[in-house]
């Protein structure tokens, strides 16, 4: 078998399901303040979708979607978003201040203040970080085989 990755059946199913998994992950991140979930679980789901892609099609295809360099930059960007939101609180006087008005109305999307923004940062960080760690471990193994 010269082609990288798994069989046609697996590839077809992965092709269909990856986008759905990604969508589900984004939903978990975006609704983290209302339903069970949040930045970390959603990020893990998004990262797992990329890992699935990598397993089914081989690492070249997955790396074409997201290279290690861009993964590294997005990884830091996610963390900086979180830190930036925390620092924004200084404008209103306190570090980590939840500065948006209209907080605490259950079952309304934008009533959690800065928590959705933090969740987006965390989701970005976690998803890219998991994918990056997975890719790093895969690349290690390849380097060993060449020896």
């Amino acid at each position: 078998m010269n082609k990288p990755g798994m069989t046609l059946i697996v590839k077809t199913i992965v092709r269909i399901s990856t986008s759905l998994i990604l969508l589900y992950g984004v939903y978990i991140v975006a609704y983290g303040q209302l339903t069970p979930g949040g930045g970390f679980p959603g990020g893990v789901i998004i990262g797992a979708a990329f890992i699935l892609l990598c397993l089914a099609f081989g690492k070249e295809v997955a790396l074409k979607k997201m290279s290690t360099a861009s993964a590294s930059i997005l990884d830091s960007a996610g963390a900086l978003i979180f830190l930036g939101v925390a620092l924004l609180g200084y404008i209103w006087g306190t570090f980590f201040l939840n500065f948006f008005p209209n907080k605490g109305i259950p079952f309304h999307l934008w009533t959690a203040g800065i928590i959705p923004l933090c969740n987006i940062g965390i989701g970005l960080k976690v998803s890219v970080c998991l994918f990056g760690a997975f890719i790093a471990l895969v690349l290690f193994r390849v380097a060993k085989k060449e020896n």
Binding site: S72, S76, A79, L80, L83, A86, F95
Partner: peptide, 19 residues
């Protein structure tokens, strides 16, 4: 107000340096 900066500044610098 400067107390959180002891944590925030090196943390931010770490991620900027990683970029």
């Amino acid at each position: 107000q400067i107390i959180p900066l002891f944590i925030a500044v090196p943390l931010g610098a770490a991620f900027i340096l990683a970029m």
